[in-house]
Design a protein around this nucleic acid. Structure first.
Lengths: 197, 197
DNA sequence: CCAGGCAGACTAACCAGTCGGTATGTCGTG
DNA sequence: CACGACATACCGACTGGTTAGTCTGCCTGG
């Protein structure tokens, strides 16, 4: 077997994915040429098309990674046995922190959906829907048990919160005054305050 | 002077802008060719480059139109003499309604910033900042006068709300169960509830 | 009869993906 | 353990197709 890692120890496929992520986030999917990706990863087109079926595949990997991570974290929190109010707060804050920790992924996520092939797009939507529904179930649980107000449909509440998460990649800057944790606490707080009966 | 309107009575530049808006929203800026735009508008490239300097100019027009409309509406509301609480509610709901009324513009707005030339991008950011600051001033006014909680920095509150507005183009569908006005009332309500002291 | 409004062929650049080729390992066999 | 057969990892020139923008010139109304 020939070299799978080069100069540094990171395997080529991961280097390609990392380079693609950074470039897609910077200039957008269409503005990033395959040539630029392979140059940034220190390989050539041969290597890329050896590991990935298409440029589109690379983008899909970004989505798959992000969706997997976030779904796992939400499930872990939602399955816990803390009171609903606490689980909602934890989930709301956690998604903010992980989003900020992967701002590149996040800005790609919401800007590049329509660059995925139709099937991949459908698949991503389906997984995203699962995530949304899990979160919505948490809200509904709180509304039924009376700890949350029922004035707003749970669906809308979820979209309200995820709008702000989505928006993070537009305005959040690491060099700004707030740490990821502080932003997360504030946003979770706003959500919980909005839900007070 | 030759024909400036064709079959229908709409002037060519506006037809081009309308066609571009619809196409940019559908497939994204990069995926829309100039050829497609002129075909949709029923003219040819000659016409487009007669009225616009570049494809990029067309995109900038979309931004300029949207920013102008929203700034005007916000100013009108903010300058009113209703109590702060009411002005914030009105402004928050109004931007939701106008965003839904121009969903194409909205989805272009948040997806295509990085397709603008650097100078135009800077200009758009500056105007957007003005809007943001006007809104923030409203929140701060409420916080100072004690009708709003001061737990969250006003900047964050504004980003929180505009995240959800931004997000509308992702999930809102006219054929869904909620009218624009209903969505607007719910979202404004969530904001005001979150701001209760 | 001229200037603005527009047509449409043309160009220069670019880019995703292909393909034949090379190098480096692994494995089975005698 | 030597050696050939095969597979994996990767290289890089090339192709076919697309695209933004240009340019020459026609056509029409004033």
């Amino acid at each position: 077997m020939a070299r799978t890692t080069d100069g540094d120890g990171t395997p080529v496929p991961q280097r390609l994915l990392a380079a693609a992520t950074r470039l897609f986030a910077d200039r957008g999917y269409d503005r990033t040429s395959v040539q630029e990706i392979v140059e940034a990863a220190g390989v050539t087109k041969g290597a890329l098309y050896h590991y990935f079926g298409s440029k589109d595949d690379l983008l899909h990997e970004v989505y798959a990674r992000m969706l997997r991570v976030q779904q796992e974290r939400l499930d872990a929190i939602a399955d816990g046995d803390a009171p609903v109010e606490q689980r909602v707060r934890d989930a709301a804050a956690d998604v903010v922190v992980t989003t900020i920790d992967n701002l590149d992924d996040a800005s790609i996520f919401f800007r590049s959906m329509h660059h995925l092939s139709p099937e991949k797009n459908k698949q991503v939507r389906a997984e995203r829907r699962r995530y949304h529904e899990r979160f919505r179930a948490l809200i509904e649980e709180g509304q039924r048990s009376g700890v949350f107000a029922s004035a707003t449909p749970a669906d809308l509440v979820v979209d309200y919160h995820f709008g702000s998460v989505h928006h993070l990649s537009t305005w959040y800057r690491p060099e700004g005054p707030l740490t990821p944790r502080q932003v997360a606490d504030h946003l979770a707080d706003l959500l919980l305050r909005a839900l007070r009966p």
